[in-house]
Amino acid sequence: MSRIIAAVDDSAAAHPVVAAAQLLAPVFGAEVEGVHVADVEGRTAAAAAAGFKIPFRTVPGEPLDVLVSLAADDDVVGFAIGQRSHVAAAATGHLALGLAGSVDKPVLVVPPRAVLPDRFRRVLIAMAGVPGRARELKRAIALAADADLELVAVHVDDESSVPSFSDQVQYETEAYAEEFLARYAPGAPGVRLDLRIGAPVEEILAACAQEHPDVLAMGWPHADEPERGEVVRAVLERSPVPVLLVATR
């Protein structure tokens, strides 16, 4: 059986992380294991795991190093982790982003006050920028489609990626959307595409408010492309729902 690692700290954020991992597990056909990276077992972390009756262990070491090493296990198919770090000086989601940038497996980043449903039903897949970058989410789309989740894709162009050409508006959007879905959502015939132009962060959050997804999915670049992560960082900061980061290259 494959595993989702619920990486919890010894804070109140542990509970929603485990809860979200439990919701994600059926998507992957996986079970959840709780992991707390610390020298001493944390009571809150352990209690969160116990509350959901999942296996739990405490592993000493540097959190990022430990989690990356866990990702090397073939049966680990994804992670759930809290949005906030207990390290006060760290930026929002620094551990989550570090993990997402280091492993090829999806990382679900859970806000501390996330309101979670009884199960994941609707996924909003958000992408910004030129279409070439959208392929990074193809995996997530395929995964969600296989799990029979309702899929909405929002693609936001900003000033830098506005199309060069747009001939007859009555066909251009139609032709672009058809090709976009054929390229990036070939296995998800029911996916709905929401095209937007504007500031990517604002438009993605606006789409989120409009569509009420249970999960937001976004691409996250590996360490060699840090400049591409600005939108994700900002969305993570403000997203009301868990954000599934999908590694990109």
């Binding site: 162009d157 508006v169 066909y171 959007t173 929401d194 937007r196 132009i197």
Partner: peptide
């Protein structure tokens, strides 16, 4: 056979006058 309206890339329904 020109349509009378369509959605543009911003999602707005716009009249087609061509």
């Amino acid at each position: 056979v020109t349509p009378s309206s369509a959605r543009d890339r911003t999602g707005r329904l716009v009249p087609i006058r061509t």
